[in-house]
Design a binder for these strands. Sequence first.
DNA 1: CAGTGAGCGAGCTTCCGCTTGACTT
Length: 781
Amino acid sequence: MAKNLLIVESPAKAKTIEKILGSDFEVKSCYGHIRDLEKDDMGIDIKNNYKPRYIVPEDKQKVVKELKQLAKKSDEVWLATDEDREGEAISWHLCEVLGLDPGSTKRIVFHEITKPAIKQAVGRPRTVDMNLVNAQQARRVLDRIVGFELSPVLWRKMSMKNNLSAGRVQSVAVRLVAEREREINAFKPQSSFKVEAMFTANDVAGKPISFKAEGSKYPDVATAEQFLHQCIGANYKVKDIQVKPTRRSPAAPFTTSTLQQEASRKLGYSVSRTMLVAQKLYENGHITYMRTDSVNLSETAMDDVRNTVQASYGNRYYQSRKYKNKNESAQEAHEAIRPTYMSNTTVPDADAKRLYELIWKRTMASQMADAELEKTVAKIEVSTNKAELAATGEVLKFDGFIKVYREDVDDEDKEGEETAEGMLPPLTVGQQLPLKEMKAIERNTRPLPRYTEASLVKKLEELGIGRPSTYAPTISTILKRGYVEKRDKEGTPRHYKVLTLSKDHITKKTETENIGAEKAKLFPTDLGLVVTDFLKQYFDDIMDYGFTARIEGDFDEVARGKLRWNKMIDEFYNPFKKDVEKTIETAERIKGERELGLDPESGKPVIARMGRYGPMVQIGTAEGEEKPRFAKLKSTQSIETITVDEAMELFRLPRVLGAFEGSDVAVSIGRFGPYIAHDKKFYSLGKEFDPYSITLEEAAPIIEEKRKAKDERTIKVFEKEKIQILRGPYGPYIKVGLRNYKLSKEQQERAADLAIEEVKKIIEEAKANPPKKAPARKKKG
DNA sequence: CAGTGAGCGAGCTTCCGCTTGACTT
């Protein structure tokens, strides 16, 4: 029996550490936080100095029970949770639950799981830092107050009230997406004409090659044409050549956020997929911990990388580098994300292989030499005017880290147009250059691109909002709540002019480009826009991008023992609570209403707003003598941008397409999307069909196909199809309207023989005992 | 599911940050 029990947060770490410490220690994990605030009444005694009421959640009771038993049997318990605010709090909660004295229980920390680091940590135990614990309690209590006060305000004031929520992190994330969308909608492109000239010169082998030189930008077609005119009959001469050596340095090793960004750009992974795959790699011992904000490599890892770089590419390619975190909010409880052993260059599983190799390459490159380049700029003068053209070329002199890895950049960070610079032929000052042709091409400025999941994470990290463990869940939350949608957008064609000077003759052409096409980008929904506007109006301090950074400053004061945590919370709570009360009292129901114009037929106003089931348009108002007409917006439409004409189109539903097999075929949009109605049956319409334009010829085969599929799945029908027994991928089940009910194994076997009485009984029972995931709420009083 | 949208009210929802499995209408 081991005398010592050492507790860490992650079970994968526990295994490794147990091997290092040997038989004197039993190493167990607590699987993160073991206690949380009770849900009733916020779990906080506001009147009693914000005293938190903690409970052990249902899913943690098993692990707590086991730890209690082990702690009793051990002579000494060591707390080795992560070295950050949350880790310190977990240690304190462990003391509270296991009956240990926080003033004397041994608390140790390490940033890397290596023998020397752990041995050293065990040799230097300290006790739980209550100031840091209090900073965490302040963080926890503040987040609970904000979330559990704001969400109910939304339930009261929104017409759509299913599962709405607000919080310090999620609401600001939605705001970012909402504001970007409005910037894009308000964007007015500026056009200008850029001059590009193509010349020819001989390369080293004496073969003529052509290259590009850039001229000035002209504000409009007239000035651009004027310039080309001036160039008619001109001679071109190299006036000046400048050669400048430049260097490029590798990026730092991966953190959670940079891994999510690169996996998104290079592999097209969503942030949650990246984390899922990384978790597998971690559990199998291939990589270090994947939820980290540190760019630091352990010393043993540095040695490992150095040896691998030197052995693979030679010493010239090696350069030792220490990276510093740019982000002040980083807590650096772990290492950067890296392979555990550099000798392991790949892993078997296909999905994991791509991510692992990305991590391996990035880690290698981080300890490699700069790439050395030579940039050449040749200035070319025009004999007929004062203009100057510039030809730029770049040559890679030494590849350095590029041999292994090159980081991609977001569209947002690209400067201007694509400047993929190639090689220039050798040129000499005074050399005459024959012009092939010169163009003035119309270019438009572009708005910032919409966020991807990963670029939103990047932005949140820059603002210090959220933590590595919450980036992926935050994105999931705002998608699940329907504040934000991830989708593609087709581009729209745009014309642009091209003036070409060739053989002393100028021609004008109009060409077409496709602009604004985007893939897997985040769009705010009307719900997201309306909720953001509301929260900004009434809770501008919490919606401020600097709010988290400011309160983090206070948490730091608490951690340093300069500020009492309940005093800090009190200063926040009183004005906040006043805002909540004032909002409940004075704010109107949120509708996001916008009048689009008048219905050309009836002359009544056409209004777009949020309804109970989402964004809608209505003709006329309830006060009028006639009932208003309603229609639901298409998923790509928005209250903010829809026009009267587009709105009028929506009233063309339901449409009767004609008769098929003696019954009318009608198409409409219901709560669950577009559908076809035929012969008293309903068939949902796939995304590839537009209910506003589908024809009878297109609808008929869908009806036949769906009817056939349904017939094949149907086992039994009761009460004119109101109650059905259908065959699903997991066996037979009961369907009543839109609700499904499970059958037991035994009932499934005799599905075809079930009588209506028995089926009804099964439904009754299922209704009486709805499947519950969450533990039953405790009734008070 | 050939539709809804007002207003009332019971009973429900909700936060962020730490960790993994259990779970498949």
